[in-house]
């Protein structure tokens, strides 16, 4: 309960110098909502209204004096509270223990699984079945060798590559290789001249 004489005192004379309680009227811009000064002014006004009643101290005193006393606590209440706290701590420790054991178990299992999986090389290589690979080769192996050389010679020489890059000038060469020296030559080899 604080006194605020500046709010409820007698009006100041018109020629009184500006004071915090009596600021010059035209120099102050209007206060926007949310302005701390406005909030402070509203608080102060509410405060004044709350505190203005001269009977408030008597009322508060009466309420405190005749405040109903709570019934006394059960004699074993503190003991019971302590037991509950002990139970709470036991549960907390048990939960923490379970949490730690679960975390450690999960980490161990994860590491073991990772190690087991990593040791098997087939897991790291692309999984292509032999049959699939054979089918792929059969499908893509399109006339990569000259038809009349298939049965004659299987020797390989390095100086003949690429034998099929220019189909217009190609001539059957019995001594040439039947095996393509690289994959590119096999793939881009034109089929029409051999048909």
């Amino acid at each position: 309960m604080t006194d605020r004489p500046q709010s409820f005192g007698p009006p100041e004379p018109p020629d009184a110098p500006p004071t915090p309680a009596n600021p010059p009227a035209n120099d102050q811009p209007p206060l926007a909502s949310g302005d701390p000064r406005l909030i402070s002014a509203v608080d102060s006004a509410v405060d004044s209204v709350v505190d203005i009643d001269p009977n408030t101290p008597q009322l508060v005193e009466f309420l405190r004096l005749h405040r109903p006393a709570p019934p006394p606590a059960h004699p074993a209440m503190e003991q019971h509270l302590w037991l509950q706290i002990q139970q709470l701590e036991r549960d907390r420790r048990r939960n923490q223990h379970r949490l730690w054991m679960g975390a450690i178990g999960a980490i161990t299992l994860g590491c073991a699984a990772l190690l087991t999986w990593g040791r098997n090389p087939s897991n790291l290589a692309p999984a292509i079945a032999d049959a699939d690979l054979e089918n792929f080769l059969e499908d893509t192996w399109v006339m990569t060798v000259a038809p009349d050389t298939l049965s004659t010679n299987t020797a390989s020489t390095d100086d003949t590559l690429p034998w099929s890059f220019d189909p217009t000038t190609w001539e059957p060469q019995p001594s040439r290789s039947i095996v393509a020296k690289n994959w590119t030559a096999m793939v881009i080899a034109p089929a029409r001249p051999y048909l």
Binding site: A69, P70, P71, H74, M77, L81, Q84
Partner: peptide, 23 residues
Amino acid sequence: VRATLYSLCDAEGLDDLVQEVFL
């Protein structure tokens, strides 16, 4: 705490409420 709870609620279950506060 007990007096405050008694003023805010009533006497019913007051011991339980006090215990709940301290828990």
